[in-house]
Design a protein around this nucleic acid. Sequence first.
RNA 1: CGGGAUGUAGCGCAGCCCGGUAGCGCGCCACGUUCGGGACGUGGAGGCCGCGAGUUCGAAUCUCGCCAUCCCGACCA
Length: 491
Amino acid sequence: MAKDFSTREENYSQWYNDLVIRAGLAENSAVRGCMVIKPYGYAIWEKMQAALDKMFKDTGHSNAYFPLFIPKSFFSKEAAHVEGFAKECAVVTHYRLKNAEDGSGVVVDETARLEEELIIRPTSETIIWDTYKNWIQSYRDLPLLINQWANVVRWEMRTRLFLRTTEFLWQEGHTAHATKEEAVEEAFTILKVYTDFAEKWMALPVLTGKKSSNERFAGAIDTYCIEALMQDGKALQAGTSHFLGQNFAKVFDVKFLSKENKLDYVWATSWGVSTRLMGALVMAHSDDRGLVLPPKLAPIQVVIVPIYRKKDQLAQISVHANNIKDALTKKGISVKYDDRDTYKPGWKFSEYEFTGVPIRLAIGPRDLENGTIEVARRDTLEKEVLQMTDIENKVEHLLLQIQENIFQKALSFRDNNTFSVDSWEEFKDVIEHKGGFVLAYWDGTVETELAIKEETKATIRTIPFTHNPEEGKCIYSGKPSNQRVVFAKAY
RNA sequence: CGGGAUGUAGCGCAGCCCGGUAGCGCGCCACGUUCGGGACGUGGAGGCCGCGAGUUCGAAUCUCGCCAUCCCGACCA
């Protein structure tokens, strides 16, 4: 019922922006490119954090915190890493302000110039590896499994709420291992965590695989990723896990003595997901009536709206509403009883629909007479009137059903928008007219990938893990290829 | 950083060509009637018209400069 609100059909990116703002998730701030995450949006992020944090802990990781600032000299040590991030770093050059002599305000005090400039972290590999050097001497100190929740800054040309902001929130894991095998295994463990999180919590089906060298993280040997498909047919990288080899260990001189008393560099991984997941969540499930949230991440899972004329009616309804609220709360379900007198039921219905609350319960005079309650679900917009008896179990069950339905809907959307093509003409046609994931043979060279990107704007999103290679010919160069890779236009 | 557009009430906009001291919708406040899908009536509050110069008796309106934001490209999670 959201009037004056764009539809996906009319203008997908406008729809996304309107949705994020109108649903109270975030807004643009006074600082260019930076957003304010509003309470409702932040509540969703906190639920994501809580779920992921537990998964990290369950796989043996601990949290720690490293500085926001990184000495410039640290940053320039790993060549590929520098190349990858240098163009988008914010730099702190001074540490003091003073009043302008002409009284026009505050100016930088030029006499307070830092001897060594500080970079605001775009990612923390360098400061962390410089620190790990002191923490690791022996194989007994390994593996070192650390995560940090932090903000980072990447000076982007163009920003969009959640999808790409100058400052964003994320978690970054940084681990050190005695062997290459162990480090690779760690990268895969995390990839599995991310996959599970996306599918089970966000109800977002993802493809997993390896990045092409072109899309790989600067400084990594291999980058593994989860990729999701948005409703406009564009792909969104939702998380990455990197096998870093010994690159950072060598640069920061992190060595350990093995059981055999041999000195060797440690093997490393790093991995992260960011507030970008919020964008993925919105774009994957929502519709023209507003947000659709999977119950597991919804700040409010159930809202109860009373319908009444007179105060004494409200009092009667409230008795039932509060009983239901208590019963649901006992089951660990987050419930809001919205008995505000300042808004009408119809207004509330629209509001909770727009903000994606999975289940709405309405109790009115009719229900009081019949011992019933109206149950409306956000994902299908279906309404039914149920007996009030045992409602908490029905609601609990329905939440699970909604979670599953949202996932299945996203999954079938992806299936319906995944195409396998064998010719260049077909490839161009699908990328341009249909979008989605396009599976095609590729000769494995950067040149071909770049040429395809140049002509179609599509990139290799991921190279799927496969145990049974099949022979084919590269759609672009015609050269032999032993597996199909996933192409798409991406966010 | 290139191309395009826009800055007027909390939000969305009109007014600008053709200069005369600011208006509409939503929202907000009060009261009353309403309340099962965004209610209605009556009354009210709220604006250095992005900033700075200039032209003019007079500028939201004309001229010049600046700033900011948004959209489209190149770069990126």
